[in-house]
Design a protein around this nucleic acid. Structure first.
Length: 371
DNA sequence: ATAGGGTTAG
């Protein structure tokens, strides 16, 4: 069915509407996206699999996985559309991101059962989830399975596996997989190198991390802010704050501007060493460099202050945070609760907890994901 | 023409 519609005498169709819905989802105005959908239907248009998938993805990115799943089921039950590989993959991703990998695997089998062939993205989504759960061998089984089906693993597949093997400390397998990539002509990209830099840093091997950075430069893959931030964190972890600060200068001289993340890492480094005043100095340096502190920045310092028993400073920093328009999140609440309890302010802790309950800060989804 | 996947701190 084709009907032409005009808005301000510009012809529009279902593609235009889907694009508009996509924008709404991206702008976090999901309600508006759904009212657009209602409007489309009311005007006699037929939303297609693109339209619905955009909405499902929107619900997922707004941490509303149950509604996404509900919509998916409803579409099937009422035969509104025939879910394709993309929609299945979107739902599979939603399941994976809410720690339902086994259900994701079931859906993979189910889609195959109805003749909807999974592709490399479908597999990568599950492989990544398995790797994050440290079930790397299961992930490797899926890689053989996809290969047998003629679906070639790509650089993202390898990145997921490398990440999983690194987290499990399986360095020999990392080496093997890394050379396998060259053999199969799958070229490492920035992402790949960043995973390796991070793995070395997490193990305290900052020298090896620096070697990886040298290699990537040689291979024509210049490091980005994530690479340098990761290295900075590595130096912080090994207590080398001066080296971490040097990285900040290296970034600048390589034309990469430090970001909020860079400062948060250094601030965290100082707080861990109970040098909260140095952390606060950095907080003051941020606006000078045109960087706005975020919730994370404040959370870290508040946590540090509590650990030193400086609850009066916590109070003023909390006020500053609110005044500057930073909305406390579930982590802030947890830090405050924990800090109040540990500093024997039980009455305050309890009344704060009640307030959080009232304000609904403990939404079901957040609870499931952060506690 | 429009939709889906991987990296850094707490």
């Amino acid at each position: 069915m084709f009907r032409e519609f005009r808005v301000l005498s510009i012809p529009v169709n279902i593609v235009t509407f889907t694009t508009a819905i996509h924008s709404c989802c991206h702008l976090n105005t999901l309600d508006y996206a759904f009212s657009l959908l209602a409007g489309i239907i009311k005007s006699g248009w037929v939303p297609d699999v693109f339209t619905y998938n955009t909405l499902i993805k929107g619900l997922l990115s707004q941490d509303r996985p149950l509604e996404a799943e509900h919509l998916f089921r409803k579409l099937i039950r009422f035969r509104e559309i025939q879910p394709d590989v993309v929609m299945h993959s979107t739902i599979i991703d939603g399941l994976c991101k809410t720690s339902n990998t086994s259900m994701a695997l079931k859906l993979l089998r189910k889609m195959e059962g109805i003749g909807c062939k999974p592709d490399v993205i479908t597999y990568n989504t599950i492989i990544d989830s398995l790797c994050k759960e440290r079930r790397v061998d299961h992930a490797l089984d899926l890689v053989s399975e996809m290969t047998h089906k003629g679906i070639s693993p790509d650089v993202i597949t390898y990145n997921c596996l490398l990440q999983g093997l690194c987290s499990s400390g399986r360095w020999e397998d990392v080496e093997r997989l890394f050379s396998e990539m060259s053999v199969r002509k799958i070229y490492s990209i920035l992402h790949t190198y960043n995973i390796l830099v991070d793995a070395h840093c997490k193990e305290g091997r900052t020298k090896d991390a620096q070697d990886v950075i040298e290699i990537m430069i040689q291979k024509g893959v210049p490091p980005n802010s994530i690479t340098y931030n990761t290295l900075m964190d590595g130096f912080c972890l090994t207590g080398k704050m001066d080296r971490a600060l040097e990285v900040l200068n290296t970034m600048r001289s390589n034309g990469i501007a430090p970001d909020c993340y860079s400062f948060n890492i250094l601030i965290n480094g100082y707080c861990k060493r109970q040098e909260v005043d140095k952390a606060i100095n950095l907080l003051r340096q941020m606006p000078v460099e045109g960087i706005k502190a975020d919730v994370q920045t404040y959370n870290t310092i508040i946590h540090g202050l509590f650990q030193m028993g400086r609850h009066n400073d916590v109070r003023s920093l909390l006020h500053e945070m609110l005044k500057k328009g930073n909305k406390p999140n579930i982590v802030t609440c947890r830090i405050l609760l924990d800090g109040l309890c540990k500093n024997r302010y039980m009455d305050e802790a309890i009344s704060f907890f009640r307030m959080m309950e009232c304000k609904g800060i403990f939404s079901k989804f957040e609870l499931a994901h952060h506690i």
